[in-house]
Structures are given as C-alpha cells and as structure tokens.
Amino acid sequence: MLTEATDPIATRFIAGGTNLLDLMKQQVEQPAKLVDINRLPLSAITELPNGGLRLGALVTNADTAYHPLVQGRYPLLAQTILAGASPQLRNKATNGGNLMQRTRCYYFYDVATPCNKRMPGSGCGALGGYNRVCGILGTSESCIATHPSDMCVALAALEAVVQVSGPHGERTIPMADFHRLPGNEPHRDNTLLPGELITAIDLPAQGFAQHYTYLKLRDRTSYAFALVSVAVGLELTDGLITQARLALGGVAHKPWRRPAAEAMLVGQPAEPETYRAVVQSLLAGSRGYDHNAFKIELAERAIVQALSQALNRSA
C-alpha cells in the first residue's frame, strides 16, 4: 500500500526543485500539490556546542561548499559537493534536497518501461536491461538502482546526522540509517515518515581535515554522475592509522559503508599492503550485472587509489 511519502500524486515539499521539477516533467512524479518551503528559517550554517557544524536544510549546495567553516574544517565535504552537478544546479539545489534526490536509473526515468521504484510491482527494467550505471552492492531482485548523490557519500563518511521534523515531533537519523537498501520495497528511498521534513544536517566535530579525499570516476571529467566514487577520511599518528572512514558512491542504493572494513585499517601502517583485505571486506558480496561488472574492479582500484591520495594530502 502506498503511503503519502511514496504516492506519486501526493503533496511534495519543494525547495530548490532541481530534481523534483525534472521528475514532474518526465511524469515520474505527479504531485497534486507543491508546498514551497523556502521561507522557513533553515538557511543558516551554525556552529554546534559539541564542536560540530549544523548545515541548514535550505542552504544551497554552493553556499555550503564555499562556506569558510566547511572549507576549513570539512574540506572532504566541500570537495565532494563541488564534484557534483554544475554551478547552476549547486546554486539552486539545497542540502535537504540533495539527500532527497532520486536515482538517475534510466528505467526509473523512462515511464514507458517497468520500474519497481516508480511503480511498485511493475518489475525492474534494469535487471536484464542496460544496467551500466546500476549498483553492485546491496542490490535486490526488485531494484539495482544507485543513489546518485556525491554529497551524501561524504556525509556518510563523516557520520553526519539528519535532523527531521514531522507530525510527531522532531527526531534525528544517522546518515547510515537515512537511505535504505531496496529489498522488496525499492519505492522507499529513505526512512523518512510521511510528512517529515529535513531541517538540518549536523556534522560531528571530527572533520578529517588533514587526510581526506573524494575520488570520483565518471564518463567525463565534469558534470556527470559517478560510476564509482570513494570518500576517505583518515587520522594518523606516527605513520599508523588511528581512525578511518570509507564510503562509496555509485555502487549501491545508499552510500556504501562497512565500519568493520574501516576498523581493519586502525593500528595499521598506511601502506598498500594494508589495503587489500580492507578492499575485500568493503566489497564482499558485490555482484556485477550484464553491463556493470567492470564496477567491481574499478571500485577495488579506486579504494586503493583514494587511500593513497588521502595520505598524501595535508591541509
């Protein structure tokens, strides 16, 4: 049964609208009403008492990426946001909307083909179709779509927390729990409840501003979605890794993390020999389809490359 959050003719919040209006033109979304939320007081970036940073849901992606506190303390997030979309889109798209954007799977967008995410029960066109851009991790027989965001990959690596307000009050959702795997309910992109609205994204104090990178691999060097991307944050003491974060984009229905794989890096020297087991752990269970099996080796190599890049970067 469709809920308001998944009903394509229900009411939708609109902020930047850069994805929603496109989906409406494609008739993927046909909301009966749009509620313009741009006058809500959610347009600030503020410091938190715990040393973290609160990103208002209505701050644009561009204003977030170029904000001095983001550039200084969370350069991984700044780099990642600027790797996505175009300047025009980043000037309009908001932080909340970035989390809410929908997959760019061709079959989701093409209303002449079946898609369980767009129309539950209709089937998956990508499974036996042209699935080059689709996922290799956490997929299901119902859906092999990926989440398209770059920003969310960095937010996952940084363990950001999503602030939500709704009919039953306010609550927080860790990034790891915000987006979900498709399972047999691929029409549910995330764990928001009907009527809930993202109000802010909180960044913890730990920003990995010394050793970080976002490596994005795509078909052209700008303004394209990731085939595979890797966000890395490392803390090092005397050549040993003391803390590690790794998140992948372009490979799953959500930013892909496995804290157990990250834990394998802790206490180890930052050397390529250390990485092999980490790569295997992070990508365990990966499965390629007719046109995207290349993503598995691409991801393996990208993880190693990103770890090396992160080490060599010093702020």
Partner: peptide, 9 residues
C-alpha cells in the same frame, strides 16, 4: 503494456 505508471489524477 505494463502497469508502469499511475494514471493521471
């Protein structure tokens, strides 16, 4: 024909 898209409201 697939049951692919909801009818227009």
């Amino acid at each position: 024909t697939f049951p692919i898209n909801p009818p227009a409201p």
